[in-house]
Every structure is written in C-alpha cells, then in structure tokens.
Design a binder for these strands. Sequence first.
DNA 1: GCCCGGATCTGTACCGATCCGGAAGATACG
DNA 2: CGTATCTTCCGGATCGGTACAGATCCGGGC
Lengths: 368, 368
Amino acid sequence: MSKALGPRPPGGRVTLLALARDLGVSRATVSNAYNRPDQLSAGLRARILGRAAELGFSGPDPIARGLRRGRVGAVGVLVDEGLSYAFSDPTAVLFLDGLAREVQADGLGLLLHAAPGGGGGELGPIRNAAVDAWVLQSLPEGHPAVAAAQAHGRPVVVLDQPALPGVPLVGIDDAAGTAAAVRHLVGLGHRRLAVLSTPLRADRAEGPADLDRQRRAGYQVVARRLAGAASAATDAGLDWAGVPVLECAANDPDAGARGTARLLDTADPPTAIVAFSDQLALGALRAAAAAGREVPGQLSVIGFDDSPTARSTVPPLTTVAQPLLDRGQDVGSLVRALLAGKQVTSPAPYAVRLVVRGSTGPVEPAGG
Amino acid sequence: MSKALGPRPPGGRVTLLALARDLGVSRATVSNAYNRPDQLSAGLRARILGRAAELGFSGPDPIARGLRRGRVGAVGVLVDEGLSYAFSDPTAVLFLDGLAREVQADGLGLLLHAAPGGGGGELGPIRNAAVDAWVLQSLPEGHPAVAAAQAHGRPVVVLDQPALPGVPLVGIDDAAGTAAAVRHLVGLGHRRLAVLSTPLRADRAEGPADLDRQRRAGYQVVARRLAGAASAATDAGLDWAGVPVLECAANDPDAGARGTARLLDTADPPTAIVAFSDQLALGALRAAAAAGREVPGQLSVIGFDDSPTARSTVPPLTTVAQPLLDRGQDVGSLVRALLAGKQVTSPAPYAVRLVVRGSTGPVEPAGG
DNA sequence: GCCCGGATCTGTACCGATCCGGAAGATACG
DNA sequence: CGTATCTTCCGGATCGGTACAGATCCGGGC
C-alpha cells in the first residue's frame, strides 16, 4: 500500500526539499500543500502533511519564504533611547497597543528596536532588520536612525515626528492643545503661568529654556506646543518672554517633580503650571504636595495626553486629551495600506480636547 | 580615470548584484565591502561604497542575508492575549525592558507577537515569524502557541512558565513568596486572611475559587503561589479550606477592586488580603478606600512583584519583591548563549524578599 | 472517436545574498 | 631569478522556498 516508510530524519533539519524527495513529489507540490491547499488533491495533501509530521518538518522556513515573497510579517518600530522609556510612558504604550492591534489583522508582529541615543549605538541592527515597514515615533529631526530605517526603501509611517518628505504622518494639533490649556488657566484668572516641558533636544539638558533654546527645539512636537502656548498667552495680554519654561531632562514624574520644585522655589512663583505631558504633571502634583502647595487652591496644574493615570491622581488631573489608542490604529492602518500597495496621504491632525478635572481652579483671592 | 558613470538606477530597486555589475567587480567583493572590510583594499571599498550611494543601494538585503546566514536578528516574544495586557502590566514591561537591553548587545530586536487567546486567533503568524529564537512568557500549560513557537526547532527560553522539557526556564520561588506574605500577616496577629488571585485558568472566570478549582490551576505560577500560601497558613494553624480565594478575571487594578469588594462584602470579612500581584493589590487599596476600610488600620493588604508603583501608593504597599528587570536580562543572556551555540541549563529560581511598607499592620484590637 | 476544459502535478527560474576554495598579481626571501 | 607568501578578488555552490508556465490525465460533449 504505502511505500515503505523512509528512515527517521537523518540528523539535520528537515527541509521542504528533503520531504519532497522522501515522498517522491515535487517541491512545488509540498509548498502548495502548505500555502495553497486548492492546488492539489486532498489525499496527497494529507499524505504530505502526515509524512511531514513524522519527519519533523514543520512548514516552510519563514526566512526563505520571506525572501521569495518579499515579506517577513514584521513591522519595525523605532523607539527612542532604549525600550525602557517607551514602555514606561503610558502614552507610548497605548500607541504601541493600538498599532499592534491593527497590524495583527494582517498577521504582522512588531519588531522593536531602540534608536541609539547620542550617536553611541550602532545603526547596523536597524539597517539589517528584517521588516516589511518601519514606524518612527518621537525622534528628533535628523536623527541618524531615521535614515537607517529609510535606507532600504520600505514603507515608512511616522507618528508625531519627524516630518519626512513623502512619508505619511499621524499627529495631533499640538499648538491648539497647549493654547486651550493656557486659555483655560487665563480664564480662571491666572496671570503667572509656567511651562513644564518635555525635553527640547536630545541632550538631556534640564533647567530654564530661554527663547533661544525654545527656538532651537529639536522635537517639533514640543516646538508646536510651545508656539501654541506662546500664542495664547500673548493673545491674553501676557508677555511670553516672562513666562518661565522649564525643560525637564526626561519625560517621567521624577523629572517633572524636580522641575516643578525649581519653578516653585523662586521669588515670584507661578500660580499655574502647564505640563507638556501627564507624566510631568504627575511629578508636578508630587512636588506641589512636597512643597505644601495645595492643588488647585494654591497651584493649578494641567497636563497633556489624558493618559489612564490622569483620572486617578489626587486631585484628578485636568489635561489635554489626545486619542492615544486611535493614533496607534491609524498608523497601523496606514502601514497596512502601504503594504497593500495603496497610495496614502497623511490624515489631518487629530483635534485635541481639554478635559477639566480637579487640578485646576480659580486663582486664589489673596496673596499667599 | 574612473569609468564613465553609469546611468541612475533604471527604476527598480538596486541589488548587490546590479551594483557589482555596474562596477565590474564580483558580488562577493561587494558583499565583502559591507561585511568584511579587511577582505579588500581600502580603495576599492571606497569606490564601491561611493557608487552604492550614487545608485541608491543601501547595503545587502536583510532578508536575503538572513536566509544565507541563518539569522535575522530578531528574538520572538510571545505575549498572552494581545499586547495591551503585556504593556499595561509594569511587571511585564520591566521584563521586556530587561530582555531588550540584554539582547540589544547582540544587535537583536524584539519581535512581539500576541498568543491568540481562546483558540480564536491564528497560529500562522507565529509559525511563520522570522525569528532566531523565541521567548515564552506566562502562557498556560499546553497553549497551542507554544507548539507553534517550538515548531521550527529554534532556541526557546521560558519565563515563569510553561515548563517545557529541555527548555531553560527563568523563574522565582513563588511558593516562598506567598508563604512569607502569609507568615508576615500571621505574625501581625491576623487570623482571617483572604487571597486575591490572578487568573487560575484562561477562561476569564471571576469569583471564589474552591479547592477543586485551585487544584486545576492552569497557570503554574499561580498554583505555586497558592501552595506556598496554603502551606504557611496550615503551619500557622489555620484551616486553608476556610481561607477564601477570590480569583480575578484579569490582572489589573479594576479586577482587583471588584474582587476585593466581594471579599469585604461578607458576614465575616478578612482582616488581611494577600494579593498575587501589585496590580491587584492596587485595586484592593482602592476598594478598601471605597468601602471605608482604613489600611492598614482595619485591613492589611500585601502585594506581589514590587512594581514601581508599589512605592507610591497610599499607603505604600507591602509586597513580595522579585527582581523584575534582572529576570528579563537573565532570559536575554540565556537566549544569547543558546544562539551562540552554548549549552545552558535553567538557573535556580530567584529568591524573593518581603518588603514591608505601610499597607500592613497589626490586627485591630477590638472588633469593628 | 476526437477535441476540450478542468484538476493535478512537475520543472525551472528566480529571490538576494554569503561562504569557501582557489587563481592572479605583488612582495619578500634566499 | 625561482619560489614561498601575502593580498585581493573571483566563481561557483548554496541557503530554502515560491511563482509561473506548462505537461499529464481524465471525463464529457458532439
């Protein structure tokens, strides 16, 4: 009936060709057994799959298939300065979640690579990464990793920045966000504002950022947020040059707390702080508590992002909400479209929305 | 001097072969220009790289190189039920961070794939993923994705579970952890304990888990934690069967809060709760506050993991600390060793350490 | 009985590189 | 000046599959 069963796998790995020979069929047929069941009879297919199981052949080699098909089923994601940061920031996490959820529909996985910070790291791993497309996120203009990712000419999609010619970008209306925040505070009577900013450049500087440094912001998102705040402040009759902008060295609560402490420890401390991220705002709340300033009684704090934690701070954080998960999905669907060969354009920047919770309030009647 | 420059790239992508022909050298030489600079003269190398830039050839194709070299520079990571969970749990995040940090040294990236939950998803993407090794994490025994990951015979390393024959595993002494927690509480005078457990099986059940369900725990980590708690409780003269074990449907604060509410809403509520994760403990604190129970005055809560947030809860969380980042790095170095062809064995389970903070205290003198 | 279309399966040409042994030319040495 | 030794570079062979264009076989229609 059946031919005498061949011996067990000789030792090495079993390949599709070996299986084909063992069965006396062509490699194409074995390949079809896996990839196009309709191209061969059910009986033969069963025989192939059966013998494959016996021999320990578990389907075509993914890499070889990748070469031939030109697809490996992976979307590269470049994250700034090590994955720890990307993971610790809820904003980035939600983005990745949305992205993963979307590309998963096409069976794609996410290949995370760190964008080497400060020129220290190697670009090789990025240039040599086997991916079908790249997603860039929060990299400063002109970061070398960007070129590395673009090198092989595969589709690229950008979140927030950097802006790249011909590359679709998903972003939000940053300027409108901070402008709304400033207007909200001004409307509550505040005149002494301060800005708690995420890093302007990748040099880990911490401290007051003068107008010159503001102008030279490497992160465009931050530049736009500054511009929005400045514009709204000016419209309200404030002198922007007099509004302290404190740049934090990192986007985490600790840095935010340090920055806030510096802002408060001045002769003429602000009555309201506009933080450029909820992470920083969290730190601001902490520092305020440590300094004995009541929020919002003596100090108003407003965040940016509306990350999940904003809801459960004490007091709950007033913040500028952006659709974190949606942006990830949008990027994902752009990637899918590009991989499907479609032409795409950047969607319009998302509108943002001010969510008023408990961390902002009217300026205190009397002087402190 | 130099030959007349050839025309611009005709249109399609430039391949190594095309570049070689254009320059009149062999493909091997071009390849060497990129991969083994010492194999050709500096002059020729410069000429090759120069012309490559002109033609828009940006190095050998990663996938083809992957096929030939048998390496693609990616470590697959299988995460349970969608990436959102993996990302939202600080425990998993720190693990991934440690892992990424370690494998990065070899230029490897992390390819995240979701392990389809409940048989709904496809295994194809996993079987066809182009990776050099797989890392499995927190998957219940016998999950189909495990076989899919093992199919191609590439190295596999497991964190916590599932235990697989011949596969190195990194884990902690779970039983000792919960045992220490129980002893701590008993030492404070507590006799009415309750356990707030992460899911026992992947069926999203929520509610009291009787002894039978406890025995059938699919997640071995949880089984061990239950065993440790049971053993310590018995040693202290308590009847384990009388200790309520409430299984949460997910490992997040919301589920923990729901579970705690149920535990507290009984005729004979516990005076102390042992949560199997900090995430759940967070929820417990929330639920306790909502129910008007003071912590630790009226209710002691103890967590597990010592995640970063444990430090900043109110009150700070007493918890069983495990070296989250280190475990990731350990898994990473095992992966590296395996890829280097070395023989490895599972390291001994990490010892855990009880960190006493403010969420546990002596049982209240009088009855409530 | 002959021609035709569909179902099956095969052969061959890639996909785009890397590796290994060896050939040419240059240099060194006795 | 002949030979040993590098230094450089070249030619297959190979990695493991997939796509596409046939070749075969078979039952049916006329």
